[in-house]
């Protein structure tokens, strides 16, 4: 009985989460800009157009460059930050906790503009690389928070025991702390990738002429919508989901080997 209720709950939730996605897929199968569902003609011509277009691939490559760089850097910085945020008690921790969350209090469009002004002041021309820095300002705090969750209620005794057995600091971190943090790090990495991949307001100001996927989708929707827009969205989702699934599979493989 309860098993049934639980299955229904999760099933209903996942279904609801997919309603908009299915809607996007349906919209991509129309041949008109002004959809009246059910379509009169069903067609995949928008996909043919998207695949043939040079721009489609360019914006994906730019978005991938940004999101992969952001994920790697944010996981490194965020894991270190989480140790300071939650593992150790130290003087200045209170301030660290407060300052760390400040970037996410910023309305993103303003943060984007302010970062662009800063890059200009520093003489750095905006490109996808400056977009990486901009994303990190906003994403590192979030990854730090997510990784920190696993460190609250963390049993320090394990580390001490390892030290007593003669393990070096690095060995303790690698053998004891990291495995405990692993679920948080995986979640943090996932968060970093998807927040960067889907980000619009920061990219719009900081990526210069390297237009990433969400910016292209948004500008095309706002100025000249056609079924090409949902078709490119679907392609983008398949690409990003494929990459994340590959990453998860690779992690699982590594875990099985060790």
């Amino acid at each position: 009985m309860t098993r049934l209720v639980m299955t229904l709950w999760v099933g209903a939730l996942v279904t609801l989460l997919y309603v908009p996605i299915v809607s996007v897929v349906l919209a991509s199968l129309a041949n008109t800009r002004y959809m009246r569902f059910p379509h009169k003609d069903w067609t995949t011509s928008a996909y043919a157009e998207a695949i043939a277009s040079h721009t489609t691939w360019q914006i994906h490559i730019i978005s991938l460059n940004i999101a992969l760089s952001v994920s790697v850097l944010a996981v490194i910085l965020g894991t270190l930050g989480a140790m300071a945020f939650a593992r150790y008690d130290w003087r200045g921790q209170g301030w660290f906790r407060r300052i760390l969350v400040l970037p996410i209090f910023f309305p993103q469009p303003v943060l984007g503009l302010a970062l662009l002004l800063s890059f200009t002041a520093a003489g750095i021309p905006p490109s996808w690389k400056t977009a990486v820095i901009a994303h990190l300002v906003w994403i590192v705090p979030i990854v730090t928070l997510v990784v920190s969750i696993r460190l609250f209620g963390y049993d320090v005794a394990q580390e001490e025991a390892a030290s007593d057995l003669g393990a070096t600091r690095w060995q303790v971190f690698k053998e004891v702390t990291l495995p405990q943090l692993a679920p948080g790090i995986v979640s943090g990495g996932l968060f970093a990738f998807l927040l960067s991949w889907a980000n619009l307001p920061l990219s719009a100001f900081t990526s210069g002429a390297d237009t990433p996927l969400p910016v292209w989708l948004f500008t095309r929707t706002a100025t000249n919508y056609s079924p090409l827009v949902p078709a490119v969205s679907v392609i983008g989702t398949v690409v990003s989901a494929g990459i994340v699934l590959l990453a998860i599979a690779a992690l699982a493989l590594i875990r099985r080997r060790t």
Binding site: V10, I21, N199
Partner: peptide, 23 residues
């Protein structure tokens, strides 16, 4: 299930909202 829930997030926000509005 976790992956199923995470997947939609890979579509940028404006597109998901567009999907919701089309729905």
């Amino acid at each position: 299930v976790a992956i199923l829930i995470a997947l939609p997030v890979f579509i940028s926000e404006s597109v998901r909202l567009f999907g919701l509005s089309v729905f």
